[in-house]
Amino acid sequence: MIKALGNFIAIIKGSLLTTRHFMVNMWFHTLKLLRIKTKRKGAVTIQYPEEKREIASRHRSLHRLLKRDDGKPRCVACMLCVTVCPSECIFVEATEDPDPEIQKSPSSFIIDLSRCCFCGFCVEACPEDAIRMDTGQIEFAEYTRDRLIYDLEKLTE
């Protein structure tokens, strides 16, 4: 009997909690509707397409390939990123570079983003700091898969 009464009180308490949330948030919504500025807001929602959340500085977003001063990609086609990629979605083909200091450069560099899991291992592995994931671009969804295959040109943009 006592236990049942305790349960009943707990049930009432639960609804009082949600009522409080409702009342407090409704109060701030009403104030906002009346154009009265308050420190708190009625909701914590970020209205996404219009309002965007700031991306953290170490956030892993779309890849990019860095360029040398003369505009060629910094990549030396060492295949380290190809090896480390857990999704096996990087495809690099090497050619000889005229500069004997560099020796090799990529003739094609393809990342299949439809398979990429954004682990960032490629960035870690690269000895030349040639690939980074700091573009801050996170909205690159496409309607077809082949548009998600990014080649050298698209990556160096």
């Binding site: 949600t18 949330h21 409702f22 948030n25 409704m26 919504h29 009625g42 909701a43 914590v44 929602t45 209205q47």
Partner: peptide, 10 residues
């Protein structure tokens, strides 16, 4: 709407 207001949403 009510569920949203209860849960601090819009």
């Amino acid at each position: 709407k009510e569920s949203a207001v209860i849960q601090d949403r819009i």
